[in-house]
C-alpha cells in the first residue's frame, strides 16, 4: 500500500466514521433539550402548527389545517379559481383539504 492509497482510503474511512458517529450520537441524544422545548411549547399552546410554514399568510391550511381545513384560495379572489398559494407547493409539507365532512347529495330521478 502506497502513501497515496493510504491517504485516500484513510480519508474515506474517516468520513464514514464521522457520518456513522453523527447518526449514533444524534439518535442517542435526540436533542433532549430541543425536543423538550418543542414539546413544552406544544403543551403550552395545546397544539398549534402542523405544516412547514411559520405564519398563515395565505391561509391556515398549510399552517394548521385544524384551524381551517379548506384552502380559501378556492373562494377568493375568484371563486372556484386556481389555488396559487405557494404554501401548497413550495414547502416540504402539503396538507390537502380534509374530506371528513361534506354535504350529502341525494340524486333524485
Amino acid at each position: 500500500m502506497t502513501k497515496n492509497t493510504f491517504y485516500i482510503l484513510g480519508t474515506i474511512i474517516c468520513l464514514i466514521i464521522a457520518v456513522v458517529s453523527f447518526f449514533t450520537i444524534d439518535a442517542l441524544h435526540s436533542h433532549t433539550t430541543y425536543i423538550r422545548n418543542v414539546q413544552d411549547f406544544q403543551k403550552l399552546v395545546h397544539g398549534v402548527g402542523l405544516g412547514a410554514t411559520t405564519k398563515p399568510a395565505w391561509g391556515y391550511i398549510n399552517f394548521d389545517p385544524r384551524i381551517e381545513p379548506r384552502c380559501t384560495c378556492i373562494e377568493w379572489p375568484i371563486p372556484g379559481g386556481y389555488c396559487y398559494s405557494p404554501d401548497h407547493s413550495g414547502t416540504v409539507s402539503f396538507i390537502s383539504d380534509t374530506i371528513e365532512t361534506g354535504v350529502l347529495i341525494d340524486i333524485l330521478k
Binding site: 406544544q42 402542523l50 409539507s93
Partner: peptide, 13 residues
C-alpha cells in the same frame, strides 16, 4: 418539521 408536527398533534386535544 414532521417531528415537531407530531408533537403538535400529540399535545393537542
Amino acid at each position: 418539521i414532521r417531528e415537531q408536527s407530531l408533537a403538535s398533534v400529540e399535545e393537542g386535544g
